[in-house]
Design a protein around this nucleic acid. Sequence first.
DNA 1: GAGTAATCGAGACGGTACGTCTAGTCTTTTG
DNA 2: CAAAAGACTAGACGTACCGTCTCGATTACTC
Lengths: 192, 192, 192, 192
Amino acid sequence: MNERRRGAVRSEAAHRSILEATAALFAEKGYDHLTIEGIAARAHVGKQTIYRWWPSKAEVVAECLLEGVLLPYQFMPPTGAPVRDDMVDWLRGLNAFVTGEQHAELFRSLVAAAMDNADVGRMLRAKLGDESVMVQRLQAAVDAGQVRSDAPLQEVSEAFAGMLALRVLSRAPAEPDAAERMVDAVLGPYLT
Amino acid sequence: MNERRRGAVRSEAAHRSILEATAALFAEKGYDHLTIEGIAARAHVGKQTIYRWWPSKAEVVAECLLEGVLLPYQFMPPTGAPVRDDMVDWLRGLNAFVTGEQHAELFRSLVAAAMDNADVGRMLRAKLGDESVMVQRLQAAVDAGQVRSDAPLQEVSEAFAGMLALRVLSRAPAEPDAAERMVDAVLGPYLT
Amino acid sequence: MNERRRGAVRSEAAHRSILEATAALFAEKGYDHLTIEGIAARAHVGKQTIYRWWPSKAEVVAECLLEGVLLPYQFMPPTGAPVRDDMVDWLRGLNAFVTGEQHAELFRSLVAAAMDNADVGRMLRAKLGDESVMVQRLQAAVDAGQVRSDAPLQEVSEAFAGMLALRVLSRAPAEPDAAERMVDAVLGPYLT
Amino acid sequence: MNERRRGAVRSEAAHRSILEATAALFAEKGYDHLTIEGIAARAHVGKQTIYRWWPSKAEVVAECLLEGVLLPYQFMPPTGAPVRDDMVDWLRGLNAFVTGEQHAELFRSLVAAAMDNADVGRMLRAKLGDESVMVQRLQAAVDAGQVRSDAPLQEVSEAFAGMLALRVLSRAPAEPDAAERMVDAVLGPYLT
DNA sequence: GAGTAATCGAGACGGTACGTCTAGTCTTTTG
DNA sequence: CAAAAGACTAGACGTACCGTCTCGATTACTC
């Protein structure tokens, strides 16, 4: 019945150490200059221990993202204020975060990693709040009578997410009023 | 005598040869697995001849883009039909192109290259039609009375461009009606 | 009274299996490419079971030699014929064995192992008949009046052994009459 | 007619540096613990520069031997005294050199290398004076009337060389009178 | 029996070195 | 005299083994 495993068991210490080293080096040097040898050295781990569990550096990065070691923030849309203000707040925060001095390079590296590996892309979208989260917030607004019930929530969400994507891609500087203009232009017509 | 002229001619041949080799190898292996050595070998050129003219492989790729060797298409929005239909056509075409079997991997590589090098990003945006081109088309629609004069053209354009960006990033499959839904949702409210 | 040990006892099956796997792999790949991991895998044995009982692969090889798993032959000088003919026979046989197609590579590996580990060297010499065995045969010839009693038996033996050693070391091909020439040159002057 | 090569030419500095580093490390750690990486590091040379010119570390060692970087001594038999004394001197010197504290380990490593690679074996024999050198010295003795003209010079030489080989192989300590006993036993009967 | 050691196969661990590949620079020869 | 050919130092790649260290199971002696 129970397939007994034999031999020593995976070392959780090594596992953690690898993820932490990866996160640190990713932040320091970016995805391109991240190396398996560097991770192994920083984590005080044999290279084989990395290759035993992950097929490529992209997968290690994906797991870092999943575990929140790389990007500990989880962006959920706020819900207290009227939907228009909540969306502006949220988009403004994300936009500032994603394009700000601190993190712009990190995100460019993450996008490069995502282009290399679909898992990284998936994790990254989940972290940044995919459209389903946005749609839920908008649906709540519909239920509260703040948004017309015939509003195309899916498309509105996609427009907002796309705006963020575009700004990462095009190295656009963070403009404080971009979020406001975007929300008014796209969501505005559907507010009651 | 004219021996010297021939030397200059040969140099231009090398230049072209490098761009063509780069384009061919880019298409074959993608940006990550593109190497200077590979380009030099394929172009029958010394590595130094590449390093003499470009500081990095990203710059070679950028010039390929500029010269149209990599991406010979130039996407301009059509102008014949009502603006709503023109935009749908245009977005649909671009979306299919960018996410289709043939080119999806190429675009992912281009995005990776753009993350590595701002020039590549600039070229890529220019090739795919940046917002200013879209804004011009929309302005024409305003002038023609098809779109309300208070419509936020900049933001509408950004929403459309963002949608495309998002689809490249997230490896979304090409949905034929996505363009239509997007145009109706974002531009719809501003049509007269 | 007797301090008996507790717990399981050394597995004879594992022991044998290791020696056999070692012999097989030694013959297949030679000493240099023999690995502890390879032996363990071939013997269906944990690596630790090898390290528990032997300090190095050289010691395992030495025991293989001792147990006759590696080299099942035991060369003793014949005694029937006149000493000159017996020595020729014996040297010829050994020389052919040691330098022949079949075994030359094996012996080179054994020499390499002997350079690595003195025990292997000891075993190897014992197997191939060290000088004391030769001296005994020659002493019998002295007693039988076939060899002068003032003959330097030790040095004559050493000369014969040295000839064999030299031929292994220098990859000399097996010459059928080498043994005869050697015996006549070195032992000849002392025959009665 | 002459196929001339293009491009840069082999760096003599790197070549020398590699041979010297190899000799130093060989002496320090022996053949087994000699590594290509170690040589490259010590010689301030890329590993590829070693692999470009030699297929294995054994070949590098062989060239070290050939170039006299590893073993700068060249043993030629002396010729001044009567042949018996010259041979004793020569054998004693070689035996002491080969089995002495200083060099025994080096020679064991060299033998191991020779078992690995035929070139090393050839070089080693040439360095230590192969039998042809000995035969020449003995022939001179024959011409001078010190040795009988029917003496089997080839076999006598082989006996002496074999004695040395055996002593390297068997880790025999250097006995000062071994050379004398050997010469008297093997060459003695042929002296006039 | 229950307890206690030592053994077993299996295999993960931190490491070292392998032999290959590419980067970016420097050098020689040739058209 | 520009540029092809290619050697140079440097360093990461992914693999193979090293010798050590768990694991859980098994075996054999002691109490």
